[in-house]
Simulated assay, not measured.
Amino acid sequence: MRIALSVLFLSTQLATTVALAQTAAEREACQADYQKFCKGVLPGGGHVIKCLADHMSELTPECQKVVKANTPG
């Protein structure tokens, strides 16, 4: 039961935040793209930003700006 609740909590948290962006505006700009291209990617270690960057040409223009601003370069 404890594991099921933990999984449910984690799933809820991942569904409601992008976890890559620092501001609410950045999260909002990439939320749909995250759900579409990177839903199974767990946050941490730059995994989400890398996933989004791998789909750069498919992202919305707003999310492309966020990814470029958060990608070391």
Rank of each mutant, 00 (worst) to 15 (best):
M1A: 14
M1N: 14
R2Y: 13
R2S: 07
A4F: 11
A4S: 11
A4L: 13
L5K: 13
S6Y: 15
S6T: 14
V7P: 01
V7H: 14
F9C: 08
L10I: 12
S11Y: 15
T12C: 11
Q13G: 06
Q13L: 14
L14E: 03
A15N: 08
A15G: 13
A15C: 12
T16C: 06
T17A: 09
V18M: 02
V18C: 12
L20Y: 10
A21T: 07
A21H: 06
Q22D: 14
A25F: 07
A25G: 07
E26D: 08
R27P: 00
R27S: 04
R27N: 10
A29T: 07
C30D: 04
C30Q: 00
Q31E: 06
Q31A: 13
A32H: 02
A32T: 08
A32R: 06
D33P: 03
D33S: 00
Q35G: 09
Q35Y: 07
K36E: 11
K36M: 12
F37C: 01
K39I: 09
G40H: 09
V41F: 04
L42T: 11
P43I: 06
P43R: 09
G45L: 05
G46L: 05
G46Q: 06
H47K: 14
V48Q: 02
A53C: 05
A53F: 12
A53S: 14
H55N: 13
H55C: 05
H55V: 04
M56I: 09
S57Y: 10
E58M: 07
L59H: 00
L59W: 01
T60P: 03
C63F: 04
Q64W: 01
Q64R: 11
Q64D: 03
K65I: 10
K65S: 09
V66K: 01
V66D: 00
V67K: 01
K68N: 12
A69I: 09
A69W: 08
A69E: 13
N70P: 00
T71H: 04
P72I: 12
P72K: 09
P72Q: 09
